[in-house]
């Protein structure tokens, strides 16, 4: 555990909590892509199956349970409790275009051809692109609530911090995981455009709106 990994995890946790609270307090999931949230629930489910097979630490286990629990709670709020506020007309990204290729890639490029390892690989690849329905939705509507941009910022910063964590681990532990690193780079790059808008607009007190 190093400072990048810890702050990355906390940033990830903050993102998840911000989104849950935003929906809960406003009693609305307007502007939130339910498809991205289903993909994240799928990501956590397939990655954390090792909760049943191995114990790393109390920190590791509790964070995994919190992430999975919050992911399903978010999906429940969007598709059940506050379904009336869900903006399905703008949430039109075709997720099969992500899930199918990612599934195929997980079968082809993995560390070990075993069920748990393929599912872990699938979750890593899927996570890297799972935000696309949300970004697509924002590009369609041309705007995002400020609280939604805080969520996206924390979520993007988390993987960027993991990149520094992997550099640290490579130098100090000789640890090197090509699959996680490549997927993490892709994931971070997808947020770059958003980071630019967040820094130049939201942090200066303006609402995030895209030119028509």
């Amino acid at each position: 555990m190093n400072v990048f990994r810890l702050t990355g995890d906390l940033s990830h946790l903050a993102a998840i909590i911000i989104l849950l609270l935003k929906i809960w307090k406003s009693r609305s999931c307007a502007g939130i892509s339910g498809k991205s949230q289903i993909l994240f629930a799928l990501v956590f489910t397939t990655r954390y199956l090792d909760l049943l097979t191995s114990f790393i630490s109390l920190y590791n286990t509790s964070m995994k349970i919190i992430y999975v629990g919050c992911a399903y709670a978010t999906v429940y709020l969007i598709y059940a409790k506050f379904r009336a506020t869900y903006d399905g007309n703008h949430d039109t990204f075709r997720v099969e275009f992500l899930v199918v290729p990612v599934g195929g890639l997980a079968f082809l490029v993995n560390h070990d051809f075993s069920p748990l390892e393929i599912l872990w690989t699938f979750s890593i690849y899927l996570e890297s692109v799972a935000i696309l329905p949300q970004l697509f939705m924002i590009s369609k509507t041309g705007e995002a609530e400020t609280i939604t941009t805080h969520y996206l910022f924390c979520l993007g910063v988390y993987r960027a911090l993991y990149l520094f964590n992997w550099i640290w681990r490579f130098y100090f532990e000789g640890f090197f995981d090509m699959i996680a690193i490549v997927a993490g780079v892709v994931q971070t790059i997808l947020y770059c455009d958003f980071f630019y808008l967040y820094i130049t607009k939201v942090l200066k007190g303006k609402k995030l709106s895209l030119p028509a």
Binding site: D9, D50, I56, N60, K64, D112, F175, F176, I179
Partner: peptide
Amino acid sequence: VIGRTHHDEL
């Protein structure tokens, strides 16, 4: 350590 022997990250 090349690759992943166990999943210690989140």
